[in-house]
Structure formats: structure tokens, C-alpha cells
């Protein structure tokens, strides 16, 4: 068994007494795509910040493989309007010694044309910018690619394509991928392992089983569950109004929190 790229055990984070994460365990293996899903306020971004080393957890342990290179695609990326910065210059900020051919290949991997290199970063559409961010992260030859809502602002057709491209990058480089997403439907199809988060890990497993779990209807709404319908699991607890887990003594999972 290969050693994981990163492993979290019992990670807890408090914000002013409010638990944001409670005893979360998570591991990403080389070549594995792990997706974190969960409702708003479930602690997805907080968990990502712990993984990235931007936030020190108040409890638990974080282990990174020594020398781990991380490529990160942030959720939001602001460019000052009017700042003269070409896509080429932006991409070369990723790492040292990148030649033109490498940049063009990186753009091609995310479905962008070479002509984009001379465009102003600020003039890109939301979708183009997301792709450029993925290209930048991939240029770092990461062992682990961490993406926060990587397809935000990308149209539906483009989303599926971008996930395919991420799959190709994974296959070519053998990197592990950790995704956070609301886009359950598309993510599920492109992922190996799903972690359902609501301040703690509700459940996790491979998204292979087809079926409708009542918990998804409650956690993500009927439409999302209907669209998804490819990942089945059972909850053994419910959430109270504060989001704390309580054991369930039978029946399905009720996420009222």
C-alpha cells in the first residue's frame, strides 16, 4: 500500500467557541480524486485551509508527505481592474524556468488556445480565468492538486469538460486531487472517493452505488439528489440546530442543522 500524500486525523477547528470542524479524518492517495461535498457552512473551505497548511487545527494531527508539492486553485481570484498583466506573465509566476512550449501545453490541457497567452488577465471571462488558474496550478507539477470549487463560473458543458481535463492531468502526472464542490452531479462522475462533510465526516465512500439515499434529499435538496442518484450511503446520526451530531436510533439521516 502506497503512503498517502496527506493524512488528517481527528482534526478539529473552533471559531470563537463555534466548532467548524469536529474530529475530521481524511487521506488522499497518489492518483486518487477525493471530493468533499457538504452544504454551506459545513466547513469545506476550513478543511481545505487545514490541508493547505494555512490554518493550524486546534485538535488532531496533519501529516504531509515530506517534500509534497501542492497546486492550489482558489475559489476566488481578484485581479485589480486595469492591471497590465498578461496570461503569460501570470503563468510564469507558477514556477521557475517555464518555456513557451510548456505554457502552451498547460493551456491546451485545460482547453484554452495559445493565443490566450497574450491576453490581459483582467480581460478573461470567468470561465477562462478558472481554467487559467487550473493551468497555473498544474504547471507546478504538483503531487497534490487542491481545488476549491474549480468550475465556479464555468458553463455546464465546460464544467464536464474541465473535470475531464482534470482527470487527464491526474492520469498523466499521477497526482492526487482534492476537490471541494457544490456541483455534486458532475463531481461524482469524476471522483474516486467522496467525503460528505457537515462539520464532521457524515459518511464517505466510493460513488459507485446507484440509488437514492434519503439523507441526500435532506442534506442537499430533492433536485440535487435526483440529479445525483449515484452515491448511496447510510447516516447513523442527525444534526441538531447547532450542527452537532446526535446518534440516530433508527430510520434515515435527518439533517435539520
Amino acid at each position: 500500500m502506497a503512503e498517502p500524500l496527506i493524512r488528517l486525523d481527528g482534526v478539529s477547528v473552533d471559531f470563537g467557541g463555534q466548532p467548524a470542524l469536529d474530529g475530521v479524518a481524511l487521506a488522499v492517495m497518489p492518483g486518487q480524486v477525493v471530493t468533499i461535498v457538504g452544504p454551506n457552512g459545513a466547513g469545506k473551505s476550513t478543511l481545505l485551509r487545514v490541508v493547505l497548511g494555512l490554518l493550524r487545527p486546534h485538535g488532531g494531527t496533519v501529516w504531509r508527505r515530506p517534500g509534497l508539492t501542492v497546486g492550489y486553485v482558489p475559489q476566488s481570484f481578484q485581479v485589480a481592474p486595469g492591471l497590465p498583466m498578461t496570461v503569460r506573465r501570470f503563468l510564469t509566476l507558477a514556477a521557475r524556468g517555464l518555456d513557451e512550449a510548456r505554457l502552451i501545453r498547460a493551456l491546451d490541457e485545460v482547453g484554452l488556445p495559445p493565443s490566450l497567452l497574450d491576453r490581459q488577465l483582467g480581460s478573461l471571462s470567468g470561465g477562462e480565468r478558472r481554467r487559467a488558474l487550473v493551468a497555473r496550478a498544474a504547471l507546478r507539477k504538483p503531487d497534490l492538486l487542491v481545488m476549491d470549487e474549480p468550475v465556479g463560473g464555468v458553463d455546464v458543458v465546460g464544467q464536464a469538460e474541465l473535470y475531464d481535463r482534470i482527470g487527464v492531468i491526474r492520469a498523466e502526472t499521477g497526482c492526487g486531487v482534492l476537490l471541494v464542490s457544490h456541483d455534486l452531479h458532475l463531481v461524482m462522475a469524476a471522483t474516486d472517493h467522496v467525503v460528505c462533510l457537515n462539520r464532521h465526516v457524515c459518511c464517505q465512500g466510493p460513488p459507485h452505488a446507484v440509488g437514492r439515499d434519503p439523507s441526500y434529499v435532506r442534506l442537499f435538496g430533492a433536485q440535487a439528489a435526483a440529479a445525483l442518484a449515484i452515491y448511496a450511503h447510510r447516516h447513523d446520526h442527525r444534526h441538531d440546530a447547532a450542527g452537532h451530531a446526535e446518534p440516530l436510533d433508527g430510520g434515515g439521516c435527518r439533517h435539520d442543522g
Binding site: R49, L52, G53, L54, V70, G71, Y72, P74, S76, F77, Q78, V79, A80, L93, A94, R140, V146
Partner: peptide
């Protein structure tokens, strides 16, 4: 210069870098 530039776009991205 380049590191400051990256940090000005997205501090978290720069930190991960």
C-alpha cells in the same frame, strides 16, 4: 518582486506556493 506580485493577487495562493 514576483512573490509580492503573486501575494497581491491571492495571498492564500501565494502561501501555498
Amino acid at each position: 518582486y514576483n512573490r509580492m506580485l503573486l501575494a497581491s493577487f491571492n495571498p492564500q495562493l501565494a502561501k501555498v506556493r
